[in-house]
Amino acid sequence: MTGSQGPAEGVDHVLGALADPMRRRILDLLAAREGCTATALAEELPVSRQAVVKHLAVLDAAGLVVGRRAGREVRYTVRSAALDATARWMAALADEWDRRLDRVKRAAEQAERDAT
């Protein structure tokens, strides 16, 4: 994620990147390792190395992975900051819905008491 992105835009990019099951699988594989190349990932996935590279580019643009050159290879690792920000946004959204549902519940209970 670039510094010019707002929080909502960052969340949108993360959710868009995570919408694809192959990208989620790539993240799972990367999370289980310290660093991994696109070639090594492709050996464990039912897609080509080129497809893995394209998925990694989307994950990188969303701030979910970072690639570092090590000689002739690029080793990718997971960046947790974007996931953490998205998790915080989702928790805040869940809290807001819990408050709304609690208000609806209290209103319904009050209406039931008033009816009796």
Results as ranks from 00 to 15, higher is better:
Gly10Ile: 09
Val11Ser: 05
Val11Arg: 11
Asp12Ser: 08
His13Val: 12
His13Asp: 09
Val14Gly: 01
Leu15Thr: 06
Leu15Arg: 13
Leu15Ala: 06
Gly16Asp: 03
Ala17Trp: 01
Ala17Phe: 01
Leu18Ser: 05
Leu18Phe: 03
Leu18Ile: 05
Leu18Tyr: 04
Ala19His: 03
Ala19Lys: 05
Asp20Glu: 09
Asp20Lys: 07
Pro21Asp: 01
Met22Trp: 08
Arg25His: 13
Arg25Thr: 14
Ile26Met: 06
Ile26Ala: 08
Leu27Asp: 05
Leu27Ala: 12
Asp28Ala: 15
Asp28Ser: 11
Asp28Met: 14
Leu29Arg: 12
Leu30Ala: 06
Leu30Ile: 09
Leu30Ser: 10
Leu30Asn: 07
Ala32Leu: 07
Ala32Val: 10
Ala32Ile: 12
Arg33Asn: 01
Arg33Gly: 00
Arg33Tyr: 02
Glu34Ser: 10
Glu34Asn: 09
Glu34His: 15
Glu34Ile: 15
Glu34Gln: 08
Gly35Met: 01
Gly35Cys: 03
Gly35Lys: 03
Gly35Glu: 02
Gly35Pro: 03
Cys36Trp: 11
Cys36Pro: 04
Cys36Gln: 08
Cys36Asp: 08
Thr37Ile: 07
Thr37His: 10
Thr39Gln: 13
Thr39Asp: 10
Ala40Asn: 08
Ala40Ile: 08
Ala40Ser: 14
Ala40Tyr: 06
Ala40Lys: 09
Leu41Cys: 08
Leu41Val: 07
Leu41Asn: 03
Ala42Trp: 06
Ala42Ile: 11
Glu43Asp: 12
Glu43Leu: 15
Glu43Lys: 07
Glu44Phe: 11
Glu44His: 07
Glu44Ile: 08
Glu44Gln: 10
Leu45Met: 15
Leu45Asp: 02
Pro46Thr: 15
Pro46Asp: 13
Pro46Cys: 10
Pro46Gly: 11
Val47Met: 15
Ser48Lys: 04
Arg49Val: 05
Gln50Phe: 14
Ala51Tyr: 01
Ala51Pro: 02
Ala51Asp: 02
Val52Asp: 00
Val52Arg: 00
Val52Tyr: 00
Lys54Ala: 11
Lys54Tyr: 14
Leu56Tyr: 04
Leu56Gln: 03
Ala57Glu: 09
Ala57Thr: 14
Val58Trp: 12
Val58Phe: 11
Asp60His: 04
Asp60Cys: 02
Ala61Asn: 08
Ala61Phe: 06
Ala61Arg: 11
Ala62Thr: 01
Ala62Met: 04
Gly63Phe: 14
Leu64Arg: 03
Val66Ile: 15
Gly67Pro: 02
Gly67Lys: 14
Gly67Arg: 15
Arg68Pro: 04
Arg68Ala: 11
Arg69Asn: 02
Arg69Asp: 05
Arg69Thr: 08
Gly71Thr: 11
Arg72Pro: 00
Arg72Lys: 12
Arg72Thr: 08
Glu73Phe: 13
Glu73His: 15
Glu73Asp: 13
Val74Gly: 00
Arg75Lys: 13
Arg75His: 11
Arg75Gln: 04
